[in-house]
Design a protein around this nucleic acid. Structure first.
Lengths: 413, 413
DNA sequence: TGGCTTTGTGCTCACGATAAACAAATGAAA
DNA sequence: TTTCATTTGTTTATCGTGAGCACAAAGCCA
């Protein structure tokens, strides 16, 4: 009853290099055991032991006989490392304006199976989350894979540590809905398992743009960035996210990067927040449609309408071109403000913002460079996101995180 | 020639708990050995060994017989830990609009000796830095203390890793001046020593507001904050800083928190950046003086003029009150934007902004709360900075950092 | 075939931290 | 005062992790 009180403060479990090693393989930064050795900064013996243990846990593959190995260099070829394709998976879920999506995602961001569900999302979070969790559980049953966690992406800021959706604008949920709690309850009801054998999964929930940023950082356009800023607009409003040192920066209560009310046009349109010219009302799909003089129809999502309009009519149609330029300028102003505040080494755009970037990269980059201190002293890389369902993959990343931090969780009694 | 290549990647030197322990004592979070044991999460034996080693290095004091110890609790009283008052010091330097300041600072943020120097700062960084370093070296000679590093605070963003002053607005330096290089050269010329015995100090240089934030976080109003945002205005323009997890967030190239061009008033005054209503031109001392209808005289600094005016005429004089309210509202808008982006758990204001906070706390807090998402769902603590020379102390913190990370540097051959 | 180069593996060893028993220093109760 | 409970410091034995080193293995290249 004496020393026992001490050694529980920090995670005493686990070889210390096990987690970092798994992350390196997971993100593809350790294709061979030799690279793993160098990246970890340990001896070959240690790296070998670590790789063997991860292999024994069923998380990675170690290919000792790389058939047709001819990477040019001489010397003994190194064992190739990879993610175990038949290893455990996590349940990734996403709720968006047009329904939900459930998927099983393995290490390396591999989407193993997907189950989309369409239709309106009602006012009761419990109902949708039950549907999406059940869909995920069905996937688990069908594939017979071991599940080691679950993550949920929602179109709202999620307050920490409460786990409540503060501003679920695109869905009819009540503000403050306890999404994480409800998600966890659904997981327990469906019998979804967590990292430790026989345990029940705890539900992780976070904002979809944040999770998209996390996914892009690990498997997409953000790989290798130390300070990654993501900005995206899906349906209404604008979301932002920041990844610092491989981790999401969610602020002290989960509400960081709520960038929608940055002023980007002093003479702009009035916003419900009381100000005018906010990023939210100046650069979202509705703003684009209205600036182009088009009416927003209810049949397809605003993002799809705006994207189609931009793709089909962009350089030619005068109104569309003017609208695009208007949004690009406003977006550039907002990005410049964010760059001045956060000084990221990379910026990634999603949703309609990605389309705007593709429409005129030069113009957007010029605005950002012109309006930011760093832009004037160097170049700020502004890129399009590359993953198809980055929010979903990000939800999976969040669910994988405990295992990535301590792979031995999988072997615990 | 094989394994030798490995074990230099990470700092293999040193008991791993030595640095964290010193930081705990340094920041006052470990007043006794028992608390140190708990904070480190190690056994009493380990904590004892660590404390003894730090004492042997001459960094801390371990008082085994606390005279008049009556902290109420029963049980054997714990040894009191403290910073060694006669231990090593660092050379802290600051350049500002009205001259420079040099000081010797010990652990715990204790200013041991100070040497101010007044007058205009010329266009040659080398000249001022030589003067300030010489003044610091003179202090070292007079006191006979061991010097283990040197840090410099400048009124400009400092680009990393170049160490150049990008926008030295308050001094006549050319933009891009290589301050760190020049500072290091002056230190070498003056024979200022570094952490390792016999070594020459390398110069660290950073923005003054950033360093002030670091100092407030460790020894001032920011103690215990996990995500600390500081905003301050000294002479012209506004500076910001963010401390995350005990470390300054300087962004990928040192230019984070350049908050001066946030739009805080769409109908505001034009700014040289091309926009209008920027935080820089709306909330700095000159803005206040002009809003109050006063002419800025050249005799004393703008900050002093504005502060005096606010302190003497605030609630009574109508023009002054209106001007203060105008600035408070603009500042609140800017803080709200930053709170939405960074979601800090504490905000600290310096310079004239501190005076504005003191003039009407309620008004400022109300604006921040009303305009920020987090403010509406909770309360954002907005506080005044408490340290007298926080930039100077912050420069010392920066210089101490290598030792705080690895105290054994002091004992190296 | 025999260098050369690079990587994997099997040992020993050093060292940091734990665990556990014991000693010391206080307050509270008898 | 004596005794006990409580809390902390100290000592010793022990263990686990990773380093260091020697050697084997597996490819290039001549």
């Amino acid at each position: 009853m004496d020393a026992v009180t001490h050694h529980r403060n920090r995670s005493d479990r686990g070889r210390s290099a096990l987690g970092p090693a798994l992350q390196l393989v997971h993100t593809g930064r350790a294709p061979t055991r030799a690279v793993l050795t160098a990246e970890l900064g340990v001896t070959r013996a240690t790296a070998g032991a670590v790789a063997a243990e991860l292999q024994a846990l069923g998380l990675i593959t170690v290919d000792s006989r790389p058939t047709g190995s001819s990477d040019g260099s001489q010397g003994r070829p190194s064992h190739r490392l990879g993610v175990e394709p038949d290893g455990p998976v996590v349940l990734a879920a996403q709720v968006h304006a047009d329904g939900f999506r459930a998927a099983l995602v393995g290490l390396g961001g591999t989407v193993v199976a997907t189950a989309p569900g369409c239709g309106d999302v009602g006012a009761d979070p419990g109902q949708v989350l039950r549907e999406v969790v059940d869909a995920g559980a069905e996937l688990l049953r069908r594939t017979g894979r071991r599940c080691v966690g679950a993550g949920l992406a929602v179109p709202s800021a999620v307050a920490e540590p409460e786990g409540t959706a503060l501003n679920p604008l695109h869905v009819a949920w009540p503000p403050g809905a306890p999404v994480r709690e409800v998600f966890s309850a659904c997981l327990a009801d469906a019998g979804v398992t967590g990292p430790a054998p026989g345990s029940v999964a705890v539900g992780y929930a976070a904002n979809d743009v944040n999770l998209g940023a996390l996914a892009e950082h690990r498997h997409g356009a953000g790989r290798g960035a130390r300070h990654l800023l993501c900005v995206a607009t899906g349906h209404r409003g604008v979301g932002g996210a920041l990844v610092l040192g491989g981790r999401l920066h969610t602020g002290s209560s989960g509400l960081a990067l709520e960038v929608g009310h940055l002023t980007v046009d002093p003479q702009g349109r009035p916003c419900h927040c009381g100000s005018r010219g906010c990023l939210d009302v100046e650069t979202d799909p509705l703003a684009f449609l209205e600036a182009a003089g088009r009416d927003a129809g209810p049949e397809v999502s605003l993002l799809d309408q705006a994207r189609d309009l931009l793709r089909t009519c962009y350089p030619g149609d005068f109104a569309v071109r003017a609208a695009a330029h208007r949004l690009i300028d406003r977006l550039g102003q907002g990005l410049a403000s964010l760059v001045n505040i956060l000084n990221p080494d990379r910026v990634i755009l999603g949703g309609l913002h990605r389309e705007l970037l593709r429409a005129d990269e030069e113009r957007l980059r010029a605005v950002v460079a012109d309006r930011s201190l760093w832009g004037r002293s160097g170049e700020v890389p502004v890129l399009a996101c590359t993953l198809d369902h980055n929010s979903l993959v990000g939800a999976a990343e969040m669910a994988w995180q405990p295992v990535l931090d301590d792979p031995l969780l999988l072997a615990e009694v």
